[in-house]
Design a protein around this nucleic acid. Structure first.
Length: 473
RNA sequence: GACCCCAUCGUCUAGAGGCCUAGGACUCCACCCUUUCAAGGUGGCAACACGGGUUCGAUUCCCGUUGGGGUCGCCA
């Protein structure tokens, strides 16, 4: 049987971490199987809460994460007619019935049940009543007749065999009074109609599964297989909130996280393959399966995400990073990003990417290469350029001016020789030099920096620093 | 409250009865390397929630307790 998975978010908010991981698992499972399909369905039956912006956010988020779906996204709302038809069939077959209880009546019923310490369920008051007793002027809902005896057992690929006594299941609403389908009806019909073979979703749907299972039975349909993955909690173990990582995926992109890092992190949150931590996407597709999914909830850990991101940044292709960094540099420089500056950043990328944890940090660290002379010095840099340092730098500048080969090796040789002659440690020259060339006290290795900057720019920046007196500042 | 699920270092996890003196990764600390910052290397701190069983032997199996989470809508 062909494997078909789906991601079925409701467009009522942002695409958060939990949703992204659910999508990732579904995608990986489909791609793991030859011929597998991954479909996207927008559960927009709640018209009041659904929005176009939310749909866009979901689509953008999935694209950014690199999770491609097969075929066009399905709008659940557009299938409302089909859902209603199924409900009416069930009604005609006597497997469902009209219920005329008003919302007020149901609220009262629940409050009473809760007060008496009983479980809060619909009591089936219209289940066996003669439709002739229907009160006038009330549009009924259609409810499914759940069995009262026996138990419902779901063989979940993650949670194992999960069972519940059928008496715990109440007669759920299939079709609302206005003729629109409820979620319970819509998912079952849509999953069935689109041939979904495996439903991989959050643990919060586990208890819903019992009821959906009954609906499949009433329809004489074979239910798909289920895998309920544990939820992702906030760092404090409580449900994700805005304080935590419950911001949209877009926020992570803006913060400078790489999609490949995000996939890696999300994959390892709730799934494992021995001691493997860094897993690229091809490897993930090859390895992914239900066996590696854990049963307990995981907490979101920003430090770990950052660490994984730093790794992917280090191994990322330079050109790919340039594409991400250039817009950020442009913004940092108010659009004054010169072509030769871009070339310097490209040349410096191998050294730069090893020192950053996010793309945002990478851009910050690269900005010194793009500054237009004279480059501003920060306080630490200014402090390094004291009288003695300037004296040594002056001498170095004169020798540098005559050096035939502007290579990191020759530059280092020369500088070390001067340090020797002056009887000082290399750092006493290298640090002021760094301050003069980068305007900061930390940077990639200074001789590499000189190479990135090139002879003219390096000498120019050095001259600028020597010409300005920072001792009184 | 009822029902369902879960339980190994602070966090993510390995572990499928003896391989466990419980392993890896992140974080943190120390040292090494070193022109700074990183990276890297070495070492360290740190866990089987508790109580009963089953067994020659339990982190691993069963039961209970405690703790955490989820679901109980004409929301999805």
């Amino acid at each position: 049987m062909a494997v078909v998975t789906r991601f079925a978010p409701s467009p009522t908010g942002i695409l958060h971490i939990g949703g992204a991981r659910t999508a990732l698992f579904n995608w990986l499972f489909a791609r793991h199987h030859a011929g597998g399909r991954f479909v996207l369905r927008i559960e927009d039956t709640d018209r009041a809460r659904s929005s176009r912006d939310a749909v866009d956010a979901i689509v953008d988020g999935l694209r950014w994460l690199g999770l491609d779906w097969d075929g066009e996204p399905v709008s659940q709302f557009a299938r409302a007619g089909r859902h209603a038809e199924v409900a009416r069939t069930l009604l005609a077959e006597g497997r469902a019935y009209h219920c005329y209880a008003t919302p007020e009546e149901l609220t009262e019923m629940r409050e009473t049940a809760r007060r008496d310490g009983r479980s809060v369920r619909y009591d089936g008051r219209w289940r066996d009543r003669d439709p002739a007793e229907a009160p006038p002027g009330i549009d009924p809902v259609i409810r499914l007749k759940m069995p009262h005896e026996g138990q419902t057992v779901v063989a979940d690929h993650v949670q194992g065999e999960v069972k519940v006594a059928n008496r715990e299941l109440d007669d759920m609403v299939l079709l609302r009074a206005d003729g629109t389908p409820t979620y319970m009806l819509a998912v079952v019909v849509d999953d069935h109609d689109s041939g979904v073979s495996h439903v991989i979703r959050g643990d919060d749907h586990l208890t819903n599964t019992f009821r959906q299972f009954q609906l499949y039975g009433a329809l004489d349909w074979i239910p798909p297989e289920f895998a309920h993955i544990p939820l992702i909690h906030g760092p404090d173990g409580a449900k994700m909130s805005k304080r935590h990582g419950a911001v949209g995926l877009a926020a992570y992109r803006e913060s400078g996280f790489l999609p490949q890092a995000m996939r890696n992190y999300l994959l390892r949150l709730g799934w494992s393959h021995g001691d493997d931590e860094i897993i690229d996407t091809d490897q993930a597709i090859a390895w992914f399966g239900f066996g590696g999914i854990g049963r307990s909830p995981a907490r979101f850990d920003m430090a770990r995400l950052i660490s994984i991101n730093a790794h992917h940044l280090r191994v990322c292709d330079d050109q790919e990073l340039m594409g991400l960094v250039i817009p950020r540099l442009g913004a940092l420089l108010d659009g004054n990003l010169a072509d030769d500056a871009v070339l310097r950043v490209l040349k410096g990328m191998p050294a730069l990417k090893a020192r950053a944890k996010t793309v945002a940090e990478l851009a910050d660290n690269a900005v010194f290469l793009t500054r237009i002379r004279p480059v501003p010095l920060d306080d630490d840099a200014a402090r390094l350029l004291d009288g003695e340092a300037r004296g040594r730098l002056g001498r170095l500048a004169r020798l540098l001016d005559e050096i035939p080969d502007w290579s990191p090796q020759r530059l280092e040789e020369l500088t070390r020789r001067i340090a020797d002659e002056e009887g000082v440690k290399l750092g006493l020259i290298a640090q002021p030099l760094r301050a003069a060339l980068t305007g900061a006290k930390a940077s990639p290795p200074i001789f590499e920096v000189m190479d990135m900057l090139g002879r003219d720019e390096s000498l120019g920046r050095l001259a600028d620093a020597l010409a300005t007196d920072h001792r009184n500042s």
